[in-house]
């Protein structure tokens, strides 16, 4: 084992140690400042499940695209946005209970944006596929978007439940759906193949995670979409 001569010698108490203390002090200050920024920024999050649940009904047309995805907004809107989303992903939940409300108000309800929901359940979320099925089963009864909102607003109540189906049935009842038809849809796996196909399509265009937003074939994260929609509207 060899130590370099100048390091192996006695370290003068003043100089090298003082330099070291300055360096470690600076690292500590930068690190603490970074942590404080993160804490403050997180506190400003506008995500609010109650805001999502208590808003008036969406004032925009809804339906299914030709390739089987649910949309909201005017079909002839100048900009189309596709959200690749996983009902169990906390960031999708934060988006749905926060920024999505503004997007609905400012773009979807004003006819500027067609908003399409692509399922992209991630393998690490065991309840993402059952939740996607619940949303589509509600969609069979014209309630995809109300169920979408309810699932995201209550995400932390069902995400860790090993058998979330009974909770989903209670949500269907809350939305005044036919619970027999809904339960039958859920247990028969009526939409499982469609969801698997949606997941595959997301994989083909290399969606890196959820939520990812696609506008004009380009991928963006939640922070960017407002700016990108505004830019696309100016074209």
């Amino acid at each position: 084992m060899s130590t370099r001569p100048q390091r192996g010698r006695a370290i003068q108490k003043s100089n090298p140690l003082r330099t070291f203390y300055i360096i470690i002090g600076v690292v500590a200050i930068i690190g603490i400042a970074a942590l404080a920024t993160i804490a403050l920024r997180s506190g400003q999050s506008t995500a609010s499940p109650s805001a999502l649940l208590n808003r008036p009904p969406l004032n925009a047309p809804t339906g299914r695209t030709a390739d089987g995805y649910y949309y909201k907004g005017q079909l002839n809107a100048p900009v189309t946005l596709a959200e690749y989303s996983d009902f169990e992903c906390p960031f999708c939940g934060a988006f749905a209970t926060g920024l999505e409300l503004m997007i609905d108000r400012d773009y979807v309800e004003t006819g500027k944006l067609l908003y399409v929901f692509h399922d992209f359940p991630l393998q690490q979320h065991p309840n993402a596929v059952p939740a996607a099925e619940a949303a589509r089963c509600a969609g069979d009864q014209n309630a995809f978007w109300p169920m979408h909102d309810l699932l995201f607003a209550t995400q932390d109540q069902w995400a860790n439940n090993r058998q979330p189906q009974s909770q989903f049935v209670s949500y269907a009842q809350q939305l005044k759906l036919d619970s027999g038809t809904f339960t039958q849809c859920l247990t028969s796996g009526k939409h499982t193949a469609e969801i698997a196909k949606a997941q595959q399509e997301g994989g083909q265009i290399q969606i890196p995670g959820t939520p990812t937003f696609v506008i004009d074939g380009k991928q963006y994260n939640a922070d960017q979409i407002r700016r990108v929609i505004d830019a696309a509207l100016k074209k």
Partner: peptide, 20 residues
């Protein structure tokens, strides 16, 4: 605080999956 700076659940998981 729940989610902090992150925006995305990456394919294959991450700190949110591990920490939850």
């Amino acid at each position: 605080l729940g989610d902090t700076g992150g925006l995305v659940c990456p394919i294959g998981g991450g700190c949110v999956t591990v920490q939850s």
